[in-house]
């Protein structure tokens, strides 16, 4: 009996440490352009599950989102983010907004709140994905909001970084900014490779 308990404990400890090691390895693995995008499954604000690999064959945008961050406010108040979402949705791009704020932290939204804010902002992503434990945010090493990731139709990361080259909270800067996301998406949709594959993202820290 005692022997069985010891055996069970050892197996449990081994499996536990293996799981912890695998998870931390996933978080440590560099997420870079040219590498396969880490797969994940998250529920959206309507409770529907989305698995990234199910969308292979499509160009995908991941936008890290916190509606209370002044940098995000700039892109939604100007209508810039909604315009990008709508323009590229019409061209077959799948756009996911991901909220990795932990409960109690700035930007956290319950599913109902996420639905309501999305309606209020007239946002047009395919879905707002909820990541309150921050697992997907950490796996992608998302640091700020907005932090933008573009995945090509084969599932490889094509662009990681800022939405544009004007790191500010001023709405009027949107007009004159060079938009890295639309630039990269246009190239991918044209069957060409992305020139600027990575830029320093700007924004508020993700509130894990």
């Amino acid at each position: 009996m005692a022997m069985n308990t010891i055996r069970f404990s050892l197996v449990f400890l081994f499996l536990f440490s293996f799981t912890v090691h695998s998870l931390s390895a996933l978080e440590r693995r560099p997420v870079e352009p040219g590498k396969k995008a880490p797969d994940f499954t998250l529920k959206d604000a309507n409770g529907k599950s989305h698995t990234l690999s199910d969308y292979e064959g499509k160009i995908i945008v991941l936008e890290w989102l916190n509606h209370e961050c002044p940098f995000v406010v700039k892109h939604y108040a100007s209508g810039n983010m909604q315009k990008l979402q709508e323009t590229f949705k019409d061209k077959g791009v799948v756009w996911f907004s991901i909220i990795s704020s932990a409960p109690g932290e700035q930007g956290y939204l319950t599913p109902e709140q996420a639905k309501s804010v999305t309606r209020e902002k007239k946002a047009k992503p395919r879905a707002v994905l909820l990541d309150p434990e921050g697992k997907v945010g950490r796996a992608y090493q998302a640091r700020v909001t907005p932090h933008m990731y573009i995945i090509d139709s084969s599932g490889f990361l094509s662009y990681i970084g800022a939405i544009d080259d004007k790191p500010s909270t001023n709405v009027e800067d949107v007009e004159t900014a060079r938009n890295y996301v639309s630039e990269a998406l246009d190239l991918l949709l044209d069957g060409r490779s992305v020139n600027t594959t990575t830029t320093q993202p700007y924004g508020c820290t993700v509130k894990y």
Partner: peptide, 10 residues
Amino acid sequence: WLACKDICVS
């Protein structure tokens, strides 16, 4: 300026 603590305010 942007003031930050656990949140950021412009």
